[in-house]
Simulated assay, not measured.
Amino acid sequence: MAGYLTTHVLDTARGCPAKGIRIALYRVSGNSHKMIAESVTNDDGRTDNPILPSESFKPGTYELVFFAGDYLRATGQGEGDILFLDQVPIRFGISDADAHYHVPLLLSPHGMSTYRGS
Rank of each mutant, 00 (worst) to 15 (best):
M1S: 14
M1A: 14
A2Y: 06
A2I: 09
A2F: 02
G3E: 10
L5M: 14
L5K: 04
L5A: 12
L5S: 05
T6N: 13
H8C: 09
V9M: 12
V9H: 02
D11F: 09
D11K: 11
D11W: 12
T12A: 08
A13S: 14
A13R: 15
R14Q: 13
R14S: 09
G15P: 02
C16N: 07
P17N: 12
P17A: 14
A18M: 03
K19P: 04
I21V: 15
R22M: 05
I23P: 01
Y26D: 04
R27P: 00
R27N: 07
V28A: 08
V28F: 02
S29T: 07
S29R: 09
S29F: 02
S29D: 10
N31G: 11
S32N: 13
K34N: 06
I36D: 02
I36N: 08
E38Q: 14
S39H: 06
V40T: 15
T41H: 08
N42Q: 05
N42D: 15
N42T: 12
D43V: 15
D44P: 00
D44Q: 09
D44I: 04
D44H: 02
G45H: 03
G45S: 00
R46T: 06
R46V: 00
R46H: 03
T47A: 03
D48Y: 11
N49V: 15
N49Y: 15
P50G: 09
I51A: 08
L52M: 06
L52K: 01
S54Q: 04
E55M: 12
S56G: 10
F57T: 05
K58R: 10
P59L: 10
G60P: 05
T61G: 03
T61M: 06
T61S: 11
Y62N: 00
E63W: 08
E63N: 01
L64I: 10
L64P: 02
L64K: 04
L64H: 00
V65N: 11
F67P: 00
A68Y: 02
G69H: 07
G69E: 12
D70W: 04
D70G: 12
Y71H: 05
A74E: 15
A74L: 07
T75L: 01
T75V: 15
G76C: 09
Q77V: 05
Q77N: 11
G78Q: 00
E79C: 05
E79N: 13
G80M: 02
G80K: 07
I82F: 04
L83R: 01
F84Q: 07
D86K: 09
Q87M: 07
V88E: 00
P89K: 01
G93R: 12
I94L: 02
I94H: 07
A97V: 11
A99P: 00
A99S: 13
H102Q: 11
H102T: 13
H102G: 08
V103K: 08
P104W: 10
P104D: 08
P104C: 08
L105T: 11
L105M: 06
L105C: 05
L106I: 08
L107E: 12
P109G: 04
P109Q: 01
P109I: 10
G111T: 06
M112Y: 07
M112I: 04
S113N: 13
S113L: 14
T114G: 04
T114P: 03
Y115N: 10
Y115T: 13
Y115S: 06
G117I: 07
G117R: 12
S118L: 14
S118M: 13
